[in-house]
Design a protein around this nucleic acid. Sequence first.
DNA 1: TAGATTGTTAATCGATTAACAATC
DNA 2: TAGATTGTTAATCGATTAACAATC
Lengths: 218, 218
Amino acid sequence: MRDTKEARVPMVVIKRLPKYFRYLGELVERKVERVSSQTLADMMGISASQLRQDLNHFGEFGQQGYGYRVEDLYREIGRIIGLEQEYSLVIVGAGNLGQALANYPNFGKRGFVLRGVFDINPKLIGLGLRNCDIMDIDKLEAFIRTNNVDIGIVAVPKEAAQGVADTMVQAGIKAIWNFAPVDIKVPPEVILENEHLADRLMVISFRIQELGFEEEGD
Amino acid sequence: MRDTKEARVPMVVIKRLPKYFRYLGELVERKVERVSSQTLADMMGISASQLRQDLNHFGEFGQQGYGYRVEDLYREIGRIIGLEQEYSLVIVGAGNLGQALANYPNFGKRGFVLRGVFDINPKLIGLGLRNCDIMDIDKLEAFIRTNNVDIGIVAVPKEAAQGVADTMVQAGIKAIWNFAPVDIKVPPEVILENEHLADRLMVISFRIQELGFEEEGD
DNA sequence: TAGATTGTTAATCGATTAACAATC
DNA sequence: TAGATTGTTAATCGATTAACAATC
């Protein structure tokens, strides 16, 4: 253990890991035994250089003249991402999005275990969702503490988002996945990932426009 | 019109536009009249240099010694993003996620108009959602054509995603926003944005792990 | 062994930051 | 006018690509 070459992995590289994992998973399903960096990179639409450079952050997984054993590399990447561990999570906000996330089957498949859903609306409290009840948001802090919850999903309106995040931080949560359309502030030791859906739609909007310029521009 | 300095804007810059827009919107709400690049950058947690460099791709919006008029810059960025136009969209897949997206109020607020929701499940077809009915996926291609739909949201299981995207492309859609956990292939003239939620969760998983190394590592 | 392909170092490219002359 | 702050050029930093010796 340790010394597996851990020297602060750049975020761009981390973000590509799930993609590697997905494509390798596909190869595993197709019962492909070996793959070269070139072949895998072509499938993924990246360069073989980048693929090898990326893997280089974590160790040596291939064999000269042969390539990579698909099954092995798949398992290794899974381990690097941390999928061999179990993470417990809670969702705050049982509106449309919160409910959709609670029911998203792909999460449970890997070791992400939904432990509870919270809302402020008395009408929702007590209702069952997936395999856990919707609880009052008053109970959030104690719940996170007693259940050692790792990840908190924020799916509340933007006005409430910072408050919910503060409570999570207070309770000692490790990471927050924010779906509210604001930039939440958390102390540096807490991991924060924002899912700004409206922002994405604006990127699409810009690019559609830009398309117009291009045509006209020549 | 034109010649407003359009020379292929880098993707990193495009992705920051909605963030500028959000923070400026907040300042507008707070009735702040002017802001300097330094102040705005501090709020956003970026450098003033980057902010000025970014704006420089689109024109000159400030005034030396004064800064930027908040109201004006807000409107300008909105225009650059393309929010003055209306875009029509359809959602394919009326499962939990599709329904949540259909009900997401923040979309409608800007000019994104939901024109239809489609599903393959006969039980869902005919049900009302927001202000449009769920239609049979058979009708998708014709619907996109006749209604000149700009953006297609893919919210179906991964096995069905590529097929749905193909139909959309066939029908002449401009952009696809994909929520299925696969990399869809589209011709280069079609804009594609992926929302790989499971990938995001894996990034969180990696970073929680990494946190463990750090502590132990010193 | 010869051919293939890795791991890794060096070269290139692009994005961020620093600096400052122009000017309100 | 003097002070502030922009727009923009130059310097730095980081990420991607190219190249190749090591080796299976």
